[in-house]
Amino acid sequence: MGASPTTLRLTLHVWRQASRDLPGAFEVHHLEGISVDMSFLEMLDVLNEGLTSQGREPFCFDHDCREGICGMCSLVINGQVHGPDQEITTCQLHMRHFADGDTIVVEPFRARALPVVRDLVVDRSAFDRIIAEGGYISTDAGSAPEGNALPISTAAADEAMDAAACIGCAGCVAACPNASAMLFTAAKVSHLAQLPQGEPERERRVLAMVERMDREGFGGCTNERECQAACPKGISVAHIARLNREFLRSSVLGRS
């Protein structure tokens, strides 16, 4: 049995698009000597350094913390959002998941509501506008209260915390066959709907956020659960069921 190679030769098909209004196309690049210990973004750094040294334009791609918590990286790698591993962001994906001689297709997230700004960078401000419709509480929370002053059951606190783990990377939209933003919106609604701080604006919040989500041009949920499977934070589709429940309850029985 031969030892696994420590470096890789790769063929990359990377999306190149000069601006939002211009058509894009795939460019083919060959890389050698890529360490299996590199992260995927480090591999792209190597590609960009090579391009820059040749006087060519590097590829634009989003990144920030590079430790899986900021939600900035946003690539579709060989048809899978954030690559082939489970519950990780692109920056946490390592090249050991690929084999020597592999061809890797790198694309931006594809959705009408997340237009490509340049190369692999998409405009995710639609998420900001959804949040601006109610993904917050309006009360002045002041400094942190005494831990037991506000009774919240452990189950509610845990579920709210699970929902709050959403980093807004938009991987759910990219993975959804319908480019739906239901998991993102659901996580935000579900997070606040379970806590007493979110209660006063509960009805208005869900109605306004869903209306904005629809207006942004995202698709609808057909319950295929690809979003949950692709989510780097493992956000459950149970939150989508809660969003549906909150929306229907607020629409039919709500006072607003």
């Binding site: 098909h13 795939f26 579709v76 060989n78 048809g79 899978q80 959002v81 297709v105 694309e107 594809r110 959705a111 009408r112 509501a113 993975a175 066959p177 319908n178 480019a179 739906s180 041009g217 995202f218 698709g219 609808g220 057909t222 319950n223 295929e224 659960r225 690809e226 949950q228 499977a229 692709a230």
Partner: peptide, 30 residues
């Protein structure tokens, strides 16, 4: 109506599309 909205929501298709494993034959072909 739902299908039309869903098609419009992704104008450019992915070159490579691979499931994350959650889709079923029934859900794919609704």
């Amino acid at each position: 109506r739902v299908q039309r909205a869903n098609r419009e929501a992704r104008e450019t298709a992915y070159r490579v599309r691979r499931t994350h494993g959650a889709r079923t034959p029934g859900s794919r072909t609704m």
